[in-house]
Nucleic acid binder design. Structure first.
Length: 305
DNA sequence: TAAGATAAGAGGGACAT
DNA sequence: ATGTCAGTCTTATCTTA
């Protein structure tokens, strides 16, 4: 969308004519009067992505036109539901993009920001497949990244670290149990970098995150192991008790859940090695032992549920 | 072989300077 | 802003049952 300061609105007379980049309509920003429905051929050539394999950055933009103040480089998100390689988007990505288009049409995004966003969304799409993320979480992640972009938080940081951090934040917010480690492995970015970006998002966007519930983690760990419902329920009871006694603050929720499961197995006569449990939970055996020791010292294990 | 113990090192929060 | 401190978690190695 761009200002056309040379002409006046023929209804209200104000110099506030705007051009819709998609339809080419000219309308007045003050009174809404549409002055021209003629399609001006200044729309971007989206073909360039699909034809050239998308690797040439010089060909990613629209053809510039001097008739518009920004030379036609103000962008919209590609109205075709295809990714940068020309493949159709998945259904969940489609809804994400649809929402972003709405945002996009309302803000004057720069070409670089748009390119950045597109690259990030590509990465996000990749992560979704690796981590099996639901579409609502995905949208949240895209939204957060968008906010980060607006606040210029991405400058000087890697796109993949930032989009991974956005995804992690979205998972935290929706109580989807994914650890920093999970995401770091999927994104091929160091855990430390993602965590730094996450903290940045957390502070700058003033996010309020619910604390990770270890009970949620039980399901996640036991899905990788074959564990009966009974054992899961027992482990959940242990965790509820530790939460009640404030034994759980500051501890890795995955470690807590793993220790509770370990004990639950022991009580129910199921033998399971700390090693397998540690692997499924993504923590070390030492951590499980420490949490287990903590449970013993708190006498939680002496309770009869 | 599984589990426990110990030690060194990393990263981040709280708090003071 | 910067440094220190206590607490957590990880990695590695050794010991114990």
């Amino acid at each position: 969308m761009t200002f056309n300061l040379n002409s006046n609105c023929s209804r209200c007379g104000k110099k506030s004519l705007l051009t819709d980049q998609v339809t080419g309509e000219q309308f007045c920003g003050k009174c809404g009067y549409v002055t021209s429905e003629k399609l001006q051929a200044s729309g971007p050539e989206w073909r360039s992505f699909q034809k050239d394999g998308g690797s040439d950055p010089a060909r990613t933009g629209a053809p510039s036109s001097l008739t518009i103040h920004d030379m036609g480089l103000s962008t919209i998100i590609n109205p075709q539901n295809r990714d940068a390689t020309g493949k159709p988007l998945t259904a969940s990505m489609k809804s994400t993009i649809t929402r972003l288009r709405t945002w996009d049409s309302r803000s004057q995004s720069s070409a670089t920001a748009d390119r950045n966003l597109r690259q990030a969304l590509n990465e996000l799409n990749r992560l979704k497949d690796k981590l099996t993320i639901s579409s609502s979480v995905l949208e949240k992640a895209a939204y957060l990244y968008r906010k980060a972009l607006e606040k210029k938080l991405v400058r000087g940081r890697s796109i993949s670290a930032m989009i991974a951090a956005s995804l992690y934040a979205a998972c935290r917010d929706t109580e989807t149990p994914r650890t920093l480690k999970d995401i770091a492995e999927a994104a091929n970015v160091k855990r430390k970098d993602i965590s730094r970006c996450y903290r940045l998002l957390y502070n700058e966007l003033e996010l309020k995150m619910p604390v990770v519930d270890p009970i949620q983690c039980i399901a996640r760990i036991s899905s990788k192991l074959k564990v009966t419902e009974k054992i899961k329920r027992y482990a959940a009871k242990i965790l509820k008790e530790t939460q009640k006694r404030q034994e759980s603050s500051g501890k890795d929720p995955m470690g807590l859940a793993a220790a509770a499961l370990y004990f639950s197995c022991a009580i129910n006569g199921v033998s399971i090695t700390q090693r397998d449990l540690a692997e499924a939970a993504g923590v070390t055996e030492v951590t499980i032992r420490n949490r287990y020791k903590g449970l013993k010292e708190a006498k939680i294990l002496e309770l009869d549920f």
